[in-house]
Simulated assay, not measured.
Amino acid sequence: MLVERLEHKAAGRVQRIPAAYTSQTCSWCGTRDREARESQAVFRCRSCGHTANADVNAAVNIAAGRAVTARGATAVLVAENREPQLATSA
């Protein structure tokens, strides 16, 4: 119901991203490895060495629009109608 309301209020700006395998995919190099989840909370890529909280890593993949096809290949979705993001100063 939440997604339906968001789609109604923000027509054309809501993008559904399947969450499958996002917690097993490295947000830095894109390598998918089920062994990268050392625990419920720790993600460590055996390919590039990137380490992060597993949920944060998955959220980065979802925010970047990275979905995974049924056969496991990475499919990057492009959102053409996104509003410009303002740069923030550190």
Rank of each mutant, 00 (worst) to 15 (best):
M1G: 08
M1N: 12
M1K: 08
L2H: 04
L2F: 06
V3D: 08
E4T: 06
E4R: 09
E4C: 01
R5T: 00
L6S: 07
H8M: 13
H8Y: 11
K9T: 03
A11K: 15
A11R: 14
G12S: 14
G12V: 05
V14P: 00
V14S: 11
Q15Y: 15
Q15M: 07
I17C: 06
I17M: 13
I17W: 04
I17R: 08
I17N: 02
A19Q: 11
A20K: 00
A20N: 13
Y21E: 03
Y21C: 05
S23I: 05
Q24A: 09
Q24C: 10
T25H: 11
C26E: 09
C26N: 09
C26M: 05
S27F: 15
S27M: 02
W28H: 14
C29Y: 14
C29K: 13
C29I: 02
G30Y: 13
G30Q: 13
T31C: 01
R34C: 01
A36K: 10
R37F: 07
R37E: 07
R37G: 00
E38A: 01
E38K: 13
E38Y: 15
S39L: 12
Q40F: 01
Q40N: 03
A41W: 02
V42R: 13
V42P: 01
R44S: 08
R44G: 01
R44I: 00
R44P: 03
C45S: 00
C45G: 05
R46V: 04
S47R: 14
S47F: 07
S47L: 01
S47K: 11
S47E: 12
C48H: 03
H50D: 00
H50E: 07
T51H: 04
T51L: 09
A52E: 11
A52I: 04
A54H: 12
V56W: 15
V56R: 12
V56C: 04
V56L: 15
V56K: 15
A58N: 03
A58Q: 00
A58I: 09
A59N: 04
A59G: 02
V60S: 14
V60D: 05
N61K: 14
I62E: 11
I62M: 00
A63Q: 14
A64T: 08
A64S: 12
R66Q: 08
R66T: 09
R66C: 00
T69R: 10
A73T: 13
A73C: 02
T74D: 02
A75N: 08
A75S: 11
A75T: 01
V76I: 04
L77P: 04
L77S: 06
V78K: 09
A79Y: 10
A79I: 02
A79D: 14
E80Q: 03
E80F: 12
N81G: 03
R82C: 09
E83M: 11
P84W: 10
Q85P: 01
Q85T: 13
L86P: 01
S89H: 15
S89G: 06
S89Q: 14
S89F: 10
S89D: 07
A90H: 10
A90F: 06
